[in-house]
Every structure is written in C-alpha cells, then in structure tokens.
C-alpha cells in the first residue's frame, strides 16, 4: 500500500535533512506504527506520503500513486486525522462532516452515524467552536473516516483524550483493520503502538533505526524479568531478577527456598524501554 525508498526531505532545501534515507513498506491491511520523539521526522514523512509536502528526493508510492505526480483521485482512498484539530469552528459538527463528504467522489459515511461512533452524537448540532479540545480531536478523527478510506493516516489519534474515549478510538481503529483498512499511525505513545500495530518503525533525527513487530522486538531486545516480593526478618522485601542471567536465576532459587514469597510476577520489557535501548533516546 505504501512504498518508500531512500526518502530525503529538507525544509531549508540544503543538507539539513528532517528525514534522511528512509525506506520502508506498508502492506495492505497492516497497522504500521511510526514512532519517535517530537522533531524526529514523523510528521515530515507523513506530510510527503499525503502530498502535503512535495517529494524532494527518493521514491514514494502511495496506494499505487507515484508521489511525484499525486492525483486528486488518490484522496478518495485516503483518510487523514491530524494531531492539531482543524475543523470549521463556525460550523456545527454535522455541517463539518457533511461538507467534507461532498468533496469526495466515492460513497461516504453518514455524518450522524460517524458522530455517534466517536461519542459526539448528541453534539451534532453544536458549533465546533464551542467544543472542548478533546471533542474537536474526535471530530477531526471522525472526519478522516468520512470517505471510507482504504489507507488511513492517523497522527496521534488518542492525544488529549480521556482513557475511556481513547479506548473507543482504539476499538474503531481495530475494527477498521478487520475491514481491510491499512493504517499508518504516527505517535510517540508506545502503549498505543504496542496494542495496535502489526509493525513499528523507530525514527530518530530523521533516520529509521529499526522496523519490526512489537512481539519480535520484545523477543529480541526485551530481557525477561521476575518481580519477587518476600518476607525477610519480619519485613517485606522486593527484588527484580532476570530469568536469563545465571546469577539471577540462582538468586530466584535461593529466594524460593529460603523465604516466604508474597507475590511473584513475570515482566516483559516495554516498547518504550526497547526504544530507549535501541536508539539511546527517550521519547520526549
């Protein structure tokens, strides 16, 4: 669905690249996570893929269209949810969606149904300018689905949402995957990526450091640990020990034989820990 080969992009049109030699492919029906801290090059890459930024160097194909000459028809198959909500404040939620529906040449979703889907059904006739930040974000998200996109670009889709609404959004994304929709998810939220993505790419300073599935990354980079809580000298003690290293394995045996164990949990490395381990950078 997306093919990117040796992509470079510089805002100053010199050798200060925001994206450097990026290459990756996204398969049909896949949820592909593009992960990195702020300023890593995520939005720039997404900008080139959606035609918001001109292709300067490299080869990019999106939904079968060459980025050198994107056709407006392509956008009939594409949906885009922006991190910054950008709806018409002076129009109602329903008017916003109804207007955008008319800008596509394909069958579109019913605005009211979409608003119900994102929990704004009862706010359909309110002006978007009166919405909270989270509500505007949901409206922007709903708008990205209006044309039944086959390829869906989501930029931080759960940012600023409360956990219950964020869970609803995740369910919607998951359901769309079941319908065969390909999703390009840009985020710095590793929990979302871990839950939703088939594969993730780590991008730092414009360079892709690694691409793999969250499971493979955990198997490859995540050392397994056991958290043990036990009673020692009438007091509670706790240790986190590796299940791989010999010294720690012996210690686990010793604790089990010697002390009264209160709790014992296995623990996998998080995607965020792996990101830090691989890139040497945090996500902020």
């Amino acid at each position: 669905m997306i093919k990117v080969k040796n992509l470079y992009h510089s805002y100053s049109k010199d050798d200060k690249y925001a994206v450097k030699d990026a290459s990756f492919e996204v398969e049909k029906g896949e949820i592909f996570g593009f992960l990195g801290p702020s300023g890593a090059g995520k939005s720039t890459t997404q900008g080139v893929l959606t035609g918001l930024l001109q292709l300067q160097k490299g080869e990019v194909t999106v939904a079968g269209y060459d980025a050198k000459k994107f056709s407006k028809k392509m956008f009939n198959d594409i949906g885009m949810s922006f991190e910054q909500s950008n709806v018409y404040n002076k129009m109602t939620a329903k008017e916003n969606l109804a207007f955008y529906a008319k800008l596509f040449d394909v069958e579109t979703k019913d605005p009211q149904e979409l608003l119900e889907l994102v929990g704004l059904g009862d706010k359909a006739n309110l002006k978007a300018g009166d919405f909270s930040k989270g509500m505007k974000h949901r409206l922007t998200f709903a708008r990205s689905m209006i044309n039944n996109p086959k390829l869906w670009f989501l930029d931080e889709p759960t940012t600023g949402l409360d956990p219950a609404i964020a869970a609803t959004i995740k369910d919607i994304i998951w359901n769309e995957k079941k319908n065969g929709v390909t999703t390009f998810l840009t985020t710095h939220n590793m929990f979302i990526a871990d839950e939703l993505c088939d594969r993730v790419a780590f991008i730092v300073d414009g360079e892709i450091k690694l691409i793999d599935s969250p499971r493979n990354l955990k198997l490859q980079y995540g050392a397994k640990f056991v958290d043990i809580e036990y009673i020692k000298d009438n007091d509670s003690a706790r240790e986190s020990l590796s299940t791989v290293e010999a010294k720690d394995r012996n210690r686990i045996k010793e604790l089990l034989d010697t002390y009264e164990i209160q709790t014992m949990h296995t623990k996998e490395a998080t995607l965020e820990e792996i990101f830090i381990k691989v890139t040497g950078r945090g996500l902020v």
């Binding site: 959606t50 035609g51 918001l52 407006k72 028809k73 956008f75 009939n76 594409i78 885009m80 922006f82 910054q84 909500s85 950008n86 709806v87 018409y88 404040n89 955008y100 800008l103 596509f104 040449d105 394909v106 922007t140 708008r143 044309n147």
Partner: peptide, 14 residues
Amino acid sequence: EQGIIKAYAVTASS
C-alpha cells in the same frame, strides 16, 4: 491559521 487548508488539501477537491 486554523489548519483548515491542510484538511482541504487531503480531499479529492482541487
């Protein structure tokens, strides 16, 4: 300023 142009730019309208 409101970013509306970006939303318009990713539609099938010219």
